[in-house]
Design a protein around this nucleic acid. Structure first.
Lengths: 375, 375
DNA sequence: CCCCTTGCCGAAACCGGTTTCGGAACGAAC
DNA sequence: GTTCGTTCCGAAACCGGTTTCGGCAAGGGG
């Protein structure tokens, strides 16, 4: 147990010579106190068999000497590497890119607040993603994972559940399940979008939903329907489209709607990128967005602020999402129950230039409105 | 040395019961071969005192049993955690955000190809960034770091050099130094931009440079000057501006230039965001971009593709940059010399709609051109 | 035939922590 | 004054690797 000052002298001598000075180890702390490594370790890890006096002495000395345990040294015994894993799948549509920086900032903040780090990997396909997860689990690269873009029948969830590895969803599971999760209530936004348009006089509203493979799509769809129902408006099936995640998708869907005998006077998109496609379709049809046709998106992509008129949309706080997700995951890793780890938030409406009062035309004139009496 | 099948049986029995099955350890491999741990370890790590026969036997058995050394178990002895560090500073201007996903993809690919992972952290200020580096170094969270957005008098470089931690620059050091680095030759792009505009008849060309704190700024400035010189054109000091990194910056600089007695017929921006600001200034001045005034940017941000007309700019392959940077860093970690680790690439010009032939006006008429004879 | 290399591998220490186990010291109960 | 139960800490094993050191056996030279 006596290690003396010998090592220390050597270290100090080496200091200027070659490498950085040797770290303060747990043995250095225990020697300085006349205790053993095990006592120091247990004192620092809140074991109950250490007296409060000793614990305080140890803490003070560790602090004074600047002792910080090496996470990968602890990992070998505890099995925990104190790291959160994130696998980013480079989607064909690049909708997630603008969010990434903020999302990472939130995750990183939440992680480092608890002494965790963030380990990330990327992949090009769903198959590669699963393989990456498999590798990271095998090599214990992370104690748990954050899953963004939750999908219906998600293979990642199946794998992580099978391997009994903690994870948390950004989004909700397709089945009302026990997964820890944080989600933005897209259905609230979609309903709010409808009611906003209705308040501007719109009665014929189209809806372009996002990718059907994602769990958010049914929710946003339901929110749109709910809004229409609450407003007492009928839903025109020809004015509801699914699975638009790119500008091109949105343009195609909108072009179709605008060529209907009675085209909608407003279109709500579940995804901003699709909304930008609506801009193109409108321009092609000779319609001025914000005057001849109203458009509302969802996501708050930066491109939306630069188009003319600026896109009214719902801003999602991705930084907050990241923070809360890492917090949830860490609590999960530490043993909290899944059902206690489910949080939500609501997106914030950005009322910009792409919505305006409905124009009087044969389809939406006050005379037509009168027709509602028939219902 | 005899560990027998006992552990193994227990493991197999536990398999279905509780946790995932216990990993294959190096002891499992050595036992299966009738060798010792040390022999297996040295065989796998290319020690010269292991016969080729034994090495092959070990490799085959390790492969067959699916043995993969635990990186954090090796780390405790080797000091290497097999991870690359990246600290992302959330700048006030969000110019780097769109690139992030691709950049990370490149880094991740290059890293995982060599069995490394990517550990990232974020920060909100220069001071916080340095502090984050300090923490990550202290806790050995990474074996080396990638520094993006190289600055003049970069505090990160000073720290890493002092701590003798390997790093690689995305960009070039301000002094012709021995730092490992990968850089895109912005000066080549700026010169090319000038020559492209000259080929369209422009002779009065403005230049709005990027952030002066970054090392790229002097290079791009030099490229612009070189282009003007090669074209035999004089540089109007009033048409050269510095330190524009946001849309607002670009708008302000362009507004000033356009209000000159002899405004430029084309403006080159060292940063796309500033170029988008030029669009605004042009619109305010009643000028049509691509007709009344030509604009060229640099970066290839996605917003540039959505404005009207689409912004002509230089596309930077950030994925490739990430891949090469992680490759360089890994070679550096493995001991390669810095001077052997310096690579560059050239950006690719995207000729879109924001440039056009110069209009004949009093300032740029053929008569004025004749004035060059005086030079 | 002996000695000295050389090639090759085993034994054991080591890295920096954590965790189990046992026992000393002390006070309370009988 | 024993006995028993707590409280609290030391000793040692352990985690999964790496690295040093030493020694055995085969081969070559004298």
């Amino acid at each position: 147990m006596i290690r003396g000052g010998f090592n220390l002298r050597i270290d100090l001598h080496d200091k200027g010579m070659r490498r950085a000075v040797t770290r303060v180890t747990i043995a250095d702390v225990s020697d300085a106190l006349g205790l053993t490594k095990s006592t120091v370790s247990r004192a620092l890890n809140h074991y109950p068999d250490i007296s409060e006096t000793t614990r305080n002495r140890v803490k003070a000395m560790a602090d004074k000497m600047g002792y910080r345990p090496l996470s990968h040294a602890q990992a070998i015994r505890t099995g925990l590497v104190k790291s959160l894993g994130l696998v980013i799948q480079m989607a064909d549509h690049d909708a997630q890119r603008p969010f990434l920086a903020e999302f990472l900032a939130g995750l990183s903040e939440g992680a480092s607040a608890e002494g965790f780090t963030l380990t990330i990997a990327t992949s090009n396909s769903a198959a590669a993603t699963v393989e990456t997860f498999r590798n990271m689990i095998r090599d214990r690269k992370a104690d748990g994972f954050i899953l963004q873009r939750t999908m219906i029948n998600d293979r990642r969830i199946a794998l992580l559940r099978k391997e009994r590895v903690p994870f948390v969803l950004f989004g909700r599971a397709d089945q009302p399940d026990d997964c820890p999760s944080f989600d933005i209530l897209g259905e609230v936004a979609m309903r709010e979008a409808v009611l906003h348009l209705v308040s501007l006089g719109h009665r014929h509203i189209g809806f372009i939903n996002g990718g059907t493979q994602y769990t958010y799509a049914p929710f946003r769809n339901a929110g749109f329907l709910r809004g229409m129902q609450d407003a007492g408006l009928p839903v025109d099936a020809a004015c509801v489209s699914q699975d638009a995640v790119t500008v091109a998708d949105g343009e195609a869907a909108a072009t179709e709607m605008l060529s209907l005998p009675t085209p909608p006077t407003a279109i709500i998109c579940a995804v901003d990128m699709a909304a930008l496609g609506v801009y193109r379709a409108a321009a092609f049809a000779g319609l001025v967005v914000g005057e001849d046709i109203s458009v509302i998106g969802y996501d708050g992509v930066p491109e939306g602020a630069h188009v003319s008129p600026p896109l009214s949309t719902f801003a999602v706080n991705f930084k907050e999402a990241g923070q809360r997700l890492s917090g949830l995951l860490i609590r999960r890793i530490r043993g909290a129950k899944s059902q206690d780890l489910q949080e939500t938030a609501v997106p914030k409406f950005l009322n910009r230039g792409s919505t305006g009062p409905v124009l009087a035309d044969p389809n939406t004139s006050i005379f037509t409105k009168g027709g509602n009496y028939e219902n």
